[in-house]
Design a protein around this nucleic acid. Sequence first.
DNA 1: AAACGTTTGGCAATCGGTTGTCAAGAATTG
DNA 2: CAATTCTTGACAACCGATTGCCAAACGTTT
Lengths: 340, 340
Amino acid sequence: MSTHPDQAERPATIHDIAALCGVAASTVSRALSTPERVNVRTRARIEEAAAMLNYTPNSQAKALSSGRTGAVGVLVPDITNPFYFDLIRGTQLQLKAAGYTQLLVDTEESDEVEASAMEQLRKGADGIIVAASRLSDEVLLAAAAKIPVVAVNRDVPGVPAVIIDTPSATSQALDHLISLGHTRVAYVAGPVSSQSSERRWTALSEAAEARGVEAHRLGPFAPTTQSGAAAADAAVHSRVSACIAFNDLIAIGMLQRLRERGIRVPEDMSIVGCDDIFGADFCNPPLTTMASPIEQAGRVAVSMLLARLNPLAGGARRSRSVMPTHLTVRGSTGPAPQDR
Amino acid sequence: MSTHPDQAERPATIHDIAALCGVAASTVSRALSTPERVNVRTRARIEEAAAMLNYTPNSQAKALSSGRTGAVGVLVPDITNPFYFDLIRGTQLQLKAAGYTQLLVDTEESDEVEASAMEQLRKGADGIIVAASRLSDEVLLAAAAKIPVVAVNRDVPGVPAVIIDTPSATSQALDHLISLGHTRVAYVAGPVSSQSSERRWTALSEAAEARGVEAHRLGPFAPTTQSGAAAADAAVHSRVSACIAFNDLIAIGMLQRLRERGIRVPEDMSIVGCDDIFGADFCNPPLTTMASPIEQAGRVAVSMLLARLNPLAGGARRSRSVMPTHLTVRGSTGPAPQDR
DNA sequence: AAACGTTTGGCAATCGGTTGTCAAGAATTG
DNA sequence: CAATTCTTGACAACCGATTGCCAAACGTTT
């Protein structure tokens, strides 16, 4: 069947090692997973044989018999949204460091796809990290009861979470705009299913009231540059002098649209984005935005999940971690126009 | 152990279905995987029971007994490089449509990480798609002998590949620059291990010679915006009036650096990028670049791989597919300066 | 030297499916 | 109605590990 019948084309198994060493397969298994329970000399022989045969444990078989898959699912609403790049990279690095495999799934901004992915992963992964979940509180909670889940940017009591503290940054952004003389500000809302959009609006409207400035709400808008065009038109129509956008994609889309319409940024209109994604620093003008350590958020999420999976390893087992956010001022915000 | 001892918390297995229908587990397995070999009525009962129990096959067990994992590994050098976003999305969509799971791995631009990931995936996946492989021809060929591999942007005889035809676009870019009056052009090279960088330089230098213009080679540079700064300085020093960069990341980095140094684009220097990544259209100035259907490239790669995995399904079993590339002219290229 | 406790290693069941083999039953045919 | 073919479904081995259980071998203590 093979070109070299006598040469083992097929990956080595513990049985091959066992045969080579003259021990039982179970001994090999123990020697490799519970070294202290096997005679030093035997173990040495086994390890030598394993190295010689270039042995790699079959993860499928391991998963089947042990129940642990060594994989963690990472669910994001849209892979092509740059915001998730850093998050994905953070989870990837941390997971790999811990010897886990990352199963990345794009849920296409759909709660159904998300739910089915979770059901799928229930057997295919040891745990799940879900970013910006579109699921209802109840469904998410139910899912978390079946498989360890860590949510990112989604706050549901009972579900461990990493929260990126954009609401507080929103207030900073408002103060920044107020200090520039703006008195009529719009919040360009994200998808209705986005909890963070909701929380940000709450923070913003409260802060605006406390400071005595007008806060309008526009949207909802899809978190893409395309919908930024509609957002820009809405903003112009609402006669505000500054906008705080749900995220940088929308903000960048607004920048483009305003430029097309001949509306100068920041002279005629100031724009604040959120996330400090790739591109925020080199768009035209560079975007004032709310930045947070996203990659770190991914790493923290993994740590929280792994602490739950391996309780023995100690660890504070936090169930909630808040990532700080700060305002990064660039060129898209400036003094309010004086035309009134 | 559970809060509801009488309720099946554990996912249903074929044995549960078999018990419910009064048939053997193997019959259930056949009914679900080889429906035509089971009595219609029995099959209907089984399917009904499966639906009732909310049965999902255990992929681990399936993989173990059948040898097929239903997963495909996708290896990219750097997840945070926007170029790969669309590629990843293309593979993800096409794989999901075919019922496969995508295992995404960031090889960190390292041939060693890439090789070990391949070895790992040899048992954990049915096939591998590797983008911009850093491996040597021999190693890649050896890997392809062990597990079906489709390479993207890597041309090794014997390894099926999807090639993005940037060399021909490079000539287009050169013609574009020549028509603008440029006579001294630099190629800003990518990593030495990148085959596409090499092929592009070959195409460019030949085209330049044929057209009687000077072509300089700068670099190598890492494919990041950071190294674009060094590239910009090198370009200025080499006194060329136009640059064709290995990719958009470098080009965008150059744009930023040139701006810092007060060198105007395109008045003093024209820049051409490659890939038309996210951001290329809204940087300042918008980047003239070589665009190709990257997402489609991902989909084609998956199709080629799956055709190999399931030969029965027919399909032309192409072993090489070339994706067209065209020049997208934006604001970063303009007439050559007249100062000489 | 006997009794004891402790390692150490092998057997076999198990995870949840797939698949080859084969016999019983149904359908078709002569 | 009997013979034959086909269909259908049950049994059991197997994929590659893990793991509970038990017995053999070892060293220690009295």
